[in-house]
Nucleic acid binder design. Structure first.
Lengths: 290, 290
DNA sequence: GTTCCGCATGAATCGATAG
DNA sequence: ACTATCGATTCATGCGGAA
């Protein structure tokens, strides 16, 4: 059975509880810079880098040498210009010892509306990939996508099969879906992800869609690995992680979000246990890496 | 009639021939660091910024205060990492006096094939927008796009209203609501451009598709404005510029590309002249253009 | 069971107004 | 002058109810 460890507190301090080189994947979407100081973790754009650097130092410590850090972030407009704190952060993290391996693009199909005289709607965010070494674990076959017209629609939902863990669909539906894939050519994806933002979830103001952490968890971890989100919010990352048979660590500073995350992760753990019983009649056991 | 001015030489020097504040739009795709070293005598990534900064200084001089500079660029992978010269360039250009207004994403729908153990295919490039002032010319209506499915259903209900209204006379007291409904079949685009790369070989090592300069020329200029490409290659930018009734300046250092560009732009100018004759009512004469 | 329609809701940004 | 707040603008998505 997957384990989960949810911590209530400031991740500056809570991260110190974690052991060196104990995490396989970090996926997080920190509070974006905001001029307002009263909002959730509001940090001014001009002080964003100095606020975030102590945290990335801890993340560098807890990440395994073969692990990966995925950072979802986007710069705000300040005085008609894109602010430069994201670029400054990348440069500072490299000085800290991180390798800036890649930048994925999250294309937000349903971006915020609006009209301005000097700019269009912002429909993309950065997904920065950092590593400790040039060699890291990457399981590319896990995120391969089928080709052809039929696949075009599936490309939108990057991983529906793993997302849906409804036991009622296990018996017939899963086998059918697998059958659809047999005999079809598969292709590796690119570094551009097409996903819509979640609009249904009212609990958290800035949830990212389930498919985002799911995709990176499939790509960079195997069952039994440890996934960390130091700004878990309502718990999207740890919830889908345990759904996928990974162990999860989540940190949240606000008690009400922490409570939401606890409920969500507990539910996912119970579902995983039930599913294991249905499928094999034996308790769930994650696949052991050799 | 549109004018064209093609210069053969190093743009370091040729740009000095241009007057201050004489250009409305600069669109260019400079030689990327170290790639295509055989054709362009590539610049090493570590020296890219110092090589490019004197050119951007000249571009800042020749651009009108209300003009825009669109820079198509992407960082190369060096030692397993994305190089940081693009970020350093942005920071240096801001110190030079440029405003970094926006970053568009060019999503390349048919990106270069290939497979690597630690990264996926690169399917996007940066389109950096720089300006001299917060206020600049932008003609957003020129690039509006059809709306999605949601609007198509709405449009059926609108057909009755459409029949009632007088399309040519506006403001006859129908009120704001009708005005809002009308024209709802088109929406403003976002800052993500979905364009395929040009498959036709134009004898240039890195052509960008016609649609790319066309889109920005429509967005940031009007007929009669001046468009500059200091690295025109085989002349894509000046060719489509004169096609669209704009005046074009192009600079190219290699004689064979310069010759290709001359031929292409001359052809476009002749076509524009013939079209003008047709529209002015003069009978068509299949004579050879001079 | 389908398809269709109405409606709420966003990691937004600008410009004007107020302190 | 400089900061804080507010209204106007806008569209893809998913949900719920209806035909």
């Amino acid at each position: 059975m997957p384990e989960s460890r949810l911590l209530l507190g400031d991740c500056h301090e809570e991260l110190r509880r974690l052991e060196d080189a104990s995490v396989d994947l970090i996926v997080t979407s920190p509070p974006y810079a905001d001029s307002r100081s009263t909002t959730y973790g509001g940090v001014s754009p001009d002080h964003y880098v100095e606020w975030f650097l102590p945290i990335t130092a801890e993340l560098l410590r807890v990440l395994k040498p073969t692990g990966t850090f995925i950072l979802n972030i986007k710069e705000k407009v300040v005085d008609g210009e894109r602010h430069t704190y994201v670029m400054e952060l990348i440069l500072a993290m490299r000085a800290q010892g991180w390798l800036w391996t890649e930048e994925f693009i999250w294309h937000k199909k349903n971006c915020y509306p609006g009209k301005w005289p000097n700019r269009f709607r912002d429909a993309w965010e950065r997904l920065l990939q950092f590593n400790k070494q040039r060699k890291f674990h990457m399981y590319q076959e896990e995120v391969m996508v089928p080709m052809g017209d039929w696949a075009e629609r599936r490309l939108r939902n990057l991983s529906q099969t793993d997302n849906v863990r409804d036991p009622s669909k296990v018996g017939s539906g899963f086998g059918k879906r697998v059958a659809n894939w047999i005999g079809r050519e598969k292709a590796y994806p690119t570094n551009v992800l097409h996903l819509a933002t979640e609009t249904k979830n009212r609990n958290h103001s800035a949830v990212f869609p389930d498919d985002l952490p799911i995709w990176f968890i499939k790509l960079f971890t195997r069952p039994g690995d440890w996934v960390l989100d130091p700004f878990m919010g309502s718990g999207t990352t740890p919830r889908v992680a345990v759904d996928m048979g990974r162990n999860a660590i989540g940190i949240e500073i606000l008690p009400n979000y922490y409570a939401l995350a606890q409920t969500a992760v507990d539910g996912a753990l119970r579902q995983t246990a039930q599913l294991a019983l249905l499928e094999s009649g034996t308790p769930y056991e994650p696949t052991e890496p050799e």
